[in-house]
């Protein structure tokens, strides 16, 4: 009994921190609740999306269908002293669009990077539909970070169980379809004013794809870039 009395201090010593932790969790749960399931799904899809450096696709816009390959990373651009982060998109008809942090630009037919002009609205939409992972990720992340409504709808895309994640407003809406289990991106569609387009996506690609795109942009291939 005397021994028990000696350890009487243990009960409040343990109860007070236990109460502090429990009250802390309860307060936060009551104030903020759980994150919406749709936003959590969008965040998981974003995590999967930005794992890729290469995105291949078949995009349809204004009745025209073209194959696209986007590669992204750090590029040595002529006229710039340091490596620039960006994304290059090569279309199956040889057209080239890119963005190295100054907006989407279109390369002239026979020129390399440096011989370009700002892309028009339709080209910018084609660039988005090429689904460059970081570029597309930025669009989704901006909505998620600012707490804007994100909607996720279960559906079947090309015979696969998928979730369609919709962001944007009435003015412009992006829908990314991802597989239900792995959250791998499989399709992208965009509604923007009079433009409406979609793209079937195949994420990832080997060194050959990277070499092909860099070669088309007249950019030398460093060995460390040859992975996807």
């Amino acid at each position: 009994m005397r021994a028990l009395r000696r350890f009487r201090w243990v009960l409040p010593a343990l109860a007070i921190p236990a109460c502090a932790a429990a009250a802390g969790v309860a307060l936060q749960a009551a104030a903020f609740g759980r994150a919406p399931q749709d936003s959590l799904l969008a965040a998981q899809a974003l995590r999967e999306l930005v794992r890729y450096r290469v995105m291949r696709g078949t995009e349809s816009l204004a009745g025209r269908s073209l194959e696209t390959t986007c590669i992204q990373g750090w590029f040595k651009i002529p006229g710039h002293g340091r490596l620039l982060r960006g994304a290059l998109v090569l279309f199956s008809n040889g057209e080239r669009l890119y963005d190295i942090g100054h907006g989407v630009r279109r390369l002239r037919r026979n020129g390399g990077v440096g011989h370009s002009r700002p892309a028009g609205r339709q080209d910018r939409i084609r660039f988005i539909l090429a689904a460059c992972p970081h570029y597309l990720g930025d669009q989704f992340a901006r909505n998620l970070v600012r707490g804007r409504a994100v909607e996720a709808v279960d559906r079947r895309t090309d015979g696969t169980d998928a979730a369609a994640i919709v962001v944007g407003s009435r003015r412009g809406q992006l829908t990314l379809d991802v597989t239900s289990v792995t959250h791998k991106p499989i399709a992208l569609s965009l509604e923007y004013g009079r433009f409406s387009g979609s793209s079937d996506l195949v994420p990832g690609g080997g060194g050959a794809e990277i070499w092909r795109v860099r070669h088309a942009f007249d950019l030398p291939l460093a060995p460390r870039h040859a992975h996807a």
Binding site: R8, P12, A13, L14, P17, A20, G24
Partner: peptide
């Protein structure tokens, strides 16, 4: 004494509630 030790541990315990939440 027990309350004192409890006060000592209350801060770290409350901080742990954030990752738990």
């Amino acid at each position: 004494r027990g309350r004192g030790v409890g006060a000592l541990l209350a801060g770290p315990a409350a901080a742990v509630s954030f990752p738990l939440y």
